[in-house]
Amino acid sequence: MSLTGIIATLPETLVIFLKTFIAVNILMLHIAYVVYFERKVIGHMQARLGPMRVGWHGLLQPIADGVKLFFKEDIIPSSADKPIFYIAPVIGVVAAISSLAVIPMWDGFSIADLNIGLLYILALSSIGSYAIILSGWASTSKYAFIGSLRSAAQVISYEIAMGMSLVGIMLLAGSASLSDIVTAQQGGVFNWFIFKQPLAFFVFVMAAIAETNRAPFDLPEAETEIVAGYFTEYSGIRFGLFFMAEYAGMFIMSAMAAVCFLGGWSGPIPGVPGIVWFLFKVYGFIFFYFWIRATLPRYRYDQLMSLGWKLFIPLALANIVITGLVKIL
């Protein structure tokens, strides 16, 4: 590309950088405060207060936690496979944050409106599971090893269910671009795909929880069984990165639910900015995550697998067939 070419594209590049900056900042703030949000919500559900000490009602708690994680000693087991051990959490965070690129937060705002946005997100969430598998392998710890094996099996099973539940959406919207999917849901609440695809929504929600390793599908990090699962051996900021990846993953999955099923930036009351609706839906969904965590016990490994293969995948397949038939007729 010639110099003039670069100069000509400069404004556009700058805009992309600006957009990225905004999105990543939103995400980072989100991660910091969604942890606070979780602790508060679950605290009140469990007849206690949650963080109260740092700042007014514990509002500075996430910052204190972040500072603590940054300055903690970074312990690396002597028998660990060091390069992989170093890189694993980074893969996780990069995969989670990159997914943000295609999420349309309001009308016309997405960093890159790929025409294969859905596939891109599915692909990146699979890459995220590499972080888990590699960290478990590199730690040379049996607990981490079992955790990562569980995770590999779980991600493979639930990725299929999730992908298939989204096929119906693509059929209805006629596109895999997330902006197009939202556009297809415009025109009133009842155009949202949650009403046209309730079965797919159900499968998607379950698969999303399993995909992000949250309760009741948190087997890869089941504390009482395998200590902390794949990140047993991690400490300090590397542990913080895994934490970040998990909460970013929750944000992405919630955003996907909002975009694909709940109409994205559109809302029932006109005049309210799209970003408000979008975040409202995302946080509603995240609240749902917390609610489930405070309510349900954990599944057992084999039960989780049989649930995935014997219930969710057939349901998703049936949904595709039904959607296809309805579409043709």
């Binding site: 469990q46 965590r293 405070a294 309510t295």
Partner: peptide, 8 residues
């Protein structure tokens, strides 16, 4: 078993 609310 994973039901943490009962605990509290």
């Amino acid at each position: 078993i994973g039901a943490m609310t009962v605990f509290l």
